[in-house]
Design a protein around this nucleic acid. Structure first.
Lengths: 180, 180
DNA sequence: TAACATAAACCGACCGGACGGTATAGTTTG
DNA sequence: CAAACTATACCGTCCGGTCGGTTTATGTTA
């Protein structure tokens, strides 16, 4: 078996899971439903991901990989580079089907332990963020605001309207770029 | 039936549900488990809350009531009063068993629609926050940072250490108090 | 190239357990 | 007794995971 073939099935499965999560909610991710969405049988899915835990952690891993990739696309010498990357990740996910946060929620609800890779990633990022600046509290406020935005989108909480939201993001960007 | 009796049973049930959510995760809130934790039978619980939806929405309602009460305890003439109340809610929930956010997560996973009361409440709060200040973006950044803190605690995400966290909260308080 | 061997990829019936909800019988209290 | 409330047996459904079997891809040998 060429590994590309396997990756393709895996990717198809993961994106099916994301599609279901976005369309019907994180709680509706079941093995059968994902298999059907991905166009294969339950057995076939379980061949690729032997347990549901494996499926969910695969989902999270894929999201984290995408996140990391986007972080690295931020110009090398940008001040508060990591922070900026986080913000862009959130903003970008508005136009993409499926979403890191959705996977997080699905994962956390079924088994909090699965979030450990995310915790590790965030610990790294936080370390970089704090070492990128001398204004730790300022950076942290921006960081939490970004996370807040994540969950606002995820849970469809009110955002004060599109233009308010625009101005907030503008302000956030300014705050980040002014960090030293 | 004396209403106090009913309220007591109801409260016992809800706090049992919170206890389970905090101890074992939001996904472990089942009717049987909650009944056992509350010291009554499944039938007894279903007499008080005829469906699981009712239980969850009761949980959310109780949390929202507590939140609102705490909001009102903030001095009448404090600038950015609502925002300050939100922050205190988050900080206080560190010392209380059970937690608004946990209920939110449990609710969202099972039925996103149940979050509607929360959305309404937040819409109100956002309106007050924006009318309390002339610096809308600044207020919103603080608002999202507070929400971010909520979810950091909920998902046990890293926070950069206790002292960093302390300083961030300090900064956040300063930001809020400086709003006009 | 035909015949066979081997293993990867996949299928889908089935099982067992969990859970939400019902029905009903029992118990307490006024 | 009646109303309020509790307890428990039970049902239907859903879901995760198993398992035996089938197809498909890849050699291998004569």
């Amino acid at each position: 078996m060429p590994p590309s073939e396997c990756r393709n099935a895996s990717r198809r499965i993961l994106s099916a899971a994301r599609a279901i999560a976005t369309r019907e909610g994180a709680g509706r991710i079941t093995i059968e439903a994902v298999a059907k969405e991905a166009g294969l049988s339950k057995g076939g899915l379980l061949y690729n991901y032997p347990t549901k835990k494996a499926l969910l952690s695969g989902l999270l891993a894929q999201m984290l990989a995408g996140h990391r990739e986007l972080l690295e696309s931020v110009p090398e010498r940008h001040p508060a580079r990591t922070l900026r990357g986080h913000l862009e990740t959130v903003l970008q996910s508005e136009e993409v089907d499926g979403d890191l946060s959705m996977a997080i929620l699905a994962t956390a609800a079924s088994d909090p332990q699965l979030l450990d890779p995310l915790r590790a990633e965030l610990t790294d990022d936080l370390g970089r963020i704090l070492s990128d600046t001398q204004d730790a509290p300022g950076a942290m406020v921006a960081f939490w605001a970004i996370q807040g935005l994540r969950f606002q989108k995820l849970l469809k909480l009110p955002d004060g309207g599109a233009d308010t939201r625009e101005r907030v993001i503008e302000r956030l960007r300014a705050l980040i770029d002014d960090l030293k």
